[in-house]
């Protein structure tokens, strides 16, 4: 069964901005799906429409077979959402926030209390349960929003940049938690600016740019579409200009570093041989960006610079 089906989704804001220009998207049940795009591409509008916080202009949203227009309550009951912006009642206690949220989905108080303990402990917030939300750090607030979204144990969990502003250790523990939730059968849609996060966690990816889907496939297939990878080579000696290497595009970063584009068909050993022929030794080598980031940049650059966007 499809967890989510979007058909010809359009959104034009009252000021005339076309945020979505006809999006079609299918997320299968159990998937871990990345929805990526630059700022202003339409990700948050799409999520807003799915969660009914934004009124669509046209199109159809179907969640686990429930049409959002005809069976809104049933569709909404399937969804849990962690929004991009912190939207907590700052003067309420953590325990009250999560138990109330369960109540809004019809979870009775006794079960809500059990789940509150389960998820607050899982997200390392149980000891702070009697604090008010205002006293939490940024990372704790994000984890509280995840715990809150899980209180009715949704079938579809939408995470809109859940790890923004969270330190690397907590972020990794959140990744493990998200993967465990997904392993338990919950379909997850993730938007993030940390592309390594999407590459590490997600099985499918859609890239949205200027209100349209520009890429939508399995993560592995999308990454295979990347024809070039850019490597940064740290040189053992200084160079004044980028060396000319037959078959490779080379750019000078500084007197100690060069960037080399290597296509999938090309051999890295040959690159080293060519450099060696010119008496240039390589101290170390790294990817300029991770693979998804590289693809993302190429896809979104193709459709215009951010300044060109409406």
């Amino acid at each position: 069964m499809d967890a989510l089906r979007l058909e010809h989704l359009r959104k034009t804001y009252p000021n005339g901005v076309q945020a979505l220009r006809g999006i079609d998207l299918v997320v299968e049940e159990g998937d871990f799906f990345a929805l990526l795009g630059p700022n202003g591409a339409g990700k948050t509008t799409t999520i807003g429409i799915i969660t009914s916080l934004v009124n669509k202009t046209a199109g159809r949203v179907v969640v686990f077979g429930h049409d959002m227009d005809r069976h809104r309550e049933a569709a909404k009951a399937c969804i849990g959402v962690v929004p991009q912006e912190v939207n907590l009642a700052m003067f309420e206690k953590l325990i009250d926030i999560v138990i109330n949220q369960a109540g809004y989905y019809g979870v009775r108080p006794r079960l809500a209390r059990q789940r509150a303990e389960k998820y607050l402990k899982a997200l390392h917030l149980w000891d702070r349960r009697h604090d008010i939300a205002r006293n939490l750090s940024g990372g704790m607030k994000r984890r509280l929003m995840i715990a809150r979204a899980l209180m009715h144990e949704p079938r579809l969990l939408i995470l809109d940049e859940p790890t923004a502003g969270v330190d690397i250790e907590i972020r990794r523990s959140m990744w493990a938690f998200m993967r465990a939730i997904n392993d338990a059968g919950v379909t997850i849609i993730l938007t993030t600016h940390y592309l390594e996060e999407a590459e590490s966690l997600c099985r499918h990816v859609a890239i949205i740019d200027r209100g349209t889907i520009v890429e939508n496939d399995r993560m592995s297939r999308v990454l295979r579409k990347l024809q070039y990878e850019t490597f940064v080579l740290s040189l053992e000696q200084t160079v004044e200009a980028a060396p000319v290497l037959d078959g490779y595009t080379v750019r000078l970063r500084n007197e100690h570093e060069i960037e080399v584009e290597v296509s999938r068909e090309q051999n890295v050993n040959r690159l080293f041989a060519l450099l060696s022929d010119q008496g240039i030794g390589v101290h170390s080598m790294r990817n300029k960006a991770n693979r998804l980031e590289e693809l993302f940049m190429r896809l979104t650059e193709r459709s215009g610079s951010p300044e060109d966007r409406p």
Binding site: H152, R155, S173, A176, A180, A184, V186
Partner: peptide, 24 residues
């Protein structure tokens, strides 16, 4: 391997994954 992550995994795998979602 970290204990707190085990808790997270355990939480997500809990059998009492009672849902109120779905056809209502």
């Amino acid at each position: 391997a970290r204990p707190e992550i085990d808790v997270a995994r355990e939480a997500a795998r809990a059998d009492d994954f009672e849902r109120v979602s779905g056809p209502a």
